[in-house]
């Protein structure tokens, strides 16, 4: 008599724990950003082991945390813009043009806080221009921003004659410390800024009514308009957010490297789009989450840095980017199908 109920009890317990596990697995895989999370973890483990732990060494992590956020902050804005159904190919050029404005203001001896605000305003203005041209003239943003990409890069090159210009952060130690200081001597301020921007955009996109307008605009513009949403204004504001983030990063980067370079932000536009796609954002708009975009935006700098730590030729970077983009999109399609089947 004794072993019988005992056995039974065990079985029930086993089933319960299996249920719990399968529920967790279902929940995890049902979550939109799970695939990019797995890709990210995979990449980190790969880089850590194959670089003989150089990737996870403290000096490297310090570099990664100081350098990576510059790209990632911009990618956050690009992701949100893509949810609204538009692209921005001009981010690198807005960045370099704003860098030039900032260095000119610095050279003129203006208070750096004021210079910073003027630079942010300039970034917002360049974003506004992208938005107005795209929405008012009904030009696809791919074309509009292809034009402004060349325009602002060219302007920066002409005005700077391609020379680098020095910036001395020690003139305003307080200014440079809030941008690039190491908190507790370890965590770079850039990481905090990235986290703050991520948090703000997450709250806006998912909990603010503006976020709902962004999704509606990207998902079904006609429906959004029929419901009284000014879709042109929504898109233009998203362009302006990208512009402001570019300007912020311009100031951040100049403060970190103490130099203006006319090559700043070169090639970031496609990488920012790649980051959003890897993070599960649809190229057609309307689909994407800030968590996915956030994870996607850190994938790109991690790949760049990881390959350096593996001591693999830089030329491999693009091959790895290509593979990661395709693999993560494939896995998210697989997970989506799986979810639809299970529902």
């Amino acid at each position: 008599m004794r072993p019988f109920p005992n056995k039974n009890g065990q079985k029930v317990k086993q089933r319960l724990s299996r249920d719990w596990k399968s529920r967790f697995v279902k929940l995890f895989f049902g979550y939109q950003s799970s695939s990019i999370f797995l890709v990210l973890i995979g990449l980190i483990l790969l880089f850590t082991f194959f670089s003989k732990y150089r990737f996870s060494s403290v000096p490297n992590i310090k570099v990664l945390l100081a350098l990576g956020p510059e790209f990632s902050i911009i990618a956050l804005g690009v992701g949100m813009l893509m949810v609204s159904g538009e692209f921005d190919l001009s981010v690198g050029s807005i960045l370099v043009f704003c860098s030039f404005i900032f260095i000119k203001l610095f050279e003129a001896g203006i208070n750096l806080f004021l210079a910073g605000f003027i630079t942010l305003a300039a970034g917002a203005l360049l974003g506004l221009l992208n938005g107005l041209i795209t929405t008012k003239a009904h030009i696809p943003s791919f074309i509009t921003t292809l034009g402004t990409m060349m325009l602002w890069r060219g302007m920066a090159l002409i005005l700077s004659q391609g020379f680098t210009r020095p910036f001395n952060p020690e003139v305003f130690p307080f200014f440079s410390s809030i941008l690039t200081a190491r908190i507790g001597g370890v965590v770079p301020a850039q990481v905090i800024w990235f986290g703050v921007f991520g948090l703000i955009l997450w709250m806006v996109l998912h909990f603010h009514k503006f976020g709902n307008w962004v999704y509606a605009t990207g998902d079904n513009k006609e429906a959004a308009r029929a419901m009284g949403i000014n879709t042109d204004r929504v898109k233009t504001i998203c362009f302006m957010i990208v512009g402001i983030l570019c300007a912020f990063v311009a100031v951040l980067q100049i403060t970190r490297v103490s130099t203006f370079s006319s090559r700043a932000g070169d090639g970031w536009e496609l990488r920012a789009i790649a980051a959003s796609v890897v993070g599960g954002t649809s190229l057609m708009g309307g689909i994407g989450s800030m968590v996915g975009i956030f994870l996607g935006s850190i994938t790109i700098p991690i790949i760049e840095n990881g390959l350096v730590m593996l001591r693999i030729s830089y030329f491999w970077t693009y091959i790895i980017f290509g593979l990661v983009i395709i693999l993560s999109v494939l896995s998210s399609i697989y997970l989506k199908r799986r979810k639809l089947r299970h529902d």
């Binding site: 709902n212 509606a216 079904n220 009284g228 949403i229």
Partner: peptide, 14 residues
């Protein structure tokens, strides 16, 4: 309707 948004987000859209 916006197909990739939830029911409640669609009902209160705008």
């Amino acid at each position: 309707l916006a197909p990739n948004l939830s029911i409640s987000r669609n009902i209160f859209m705008g």
